[in-house]
Amino acid sequence: MLKIWSMKQQQQKNEAAAGPAAKKKKVTAAQLRVQKDLSELALPQTMKTVFPNPDDILNFTLHLTPDEGLYKSGSFSFTFAISQNFPHEPPKVKCQQKIYHPNIDLEGNICLNILREDWKPVLNLNAVVVGLQFLFLEPNASDPLNKEAAADLQGDRDRFKRNVRSSMQGGSVKGESFDKVVK
């Protein structure tokens, strides 16, 4: 150990001197990473974030209003809950509205590979945001979370389109009523 300390002193000589450590709580590794991700977050016009408690950057809401595609003009919001295990673990993201979408169930669970099985610590919040945007531009029938909607999309794209429009107005599809997401 003596030798290690002399190596440390040598190392220190090669660097600028650092003062004694802070006594107060340190910014956590997860906070550091989220702060970095937020500074790099490039949101298009169709999206914005809301932080209910600005001091808590690990919990926020993302609002998305697609300007093209089947879900055009709907207002959708997603809660982001990030744990202290980030980025080892992905953020927990849920859709707050009950919507008719093949990859989102009625509880707001989302089937997006990078939110679960394909999450990697090198991915960042930007990747998640892009992934969500993509789900609304290109809903896909091969990863169904809402089986009826997926079958609908696969069977008859026009009917699916009509069902999406009516669900977004707050209407019912196959006996299930949905939240109104358009003004």
Partner: peptide, 18 residues
């Protein structure tokens, strides 16, 4: 720049809402 302590968000240049 984005600045924070463990407890508080001091000042964030982005995202816009913060």
């Amino acid at each position: 720049p984005n600045l924070r302590t463990e407890e508080k968000t001091l000042y964030y240049s982005s995202p816009a809402s913060l």
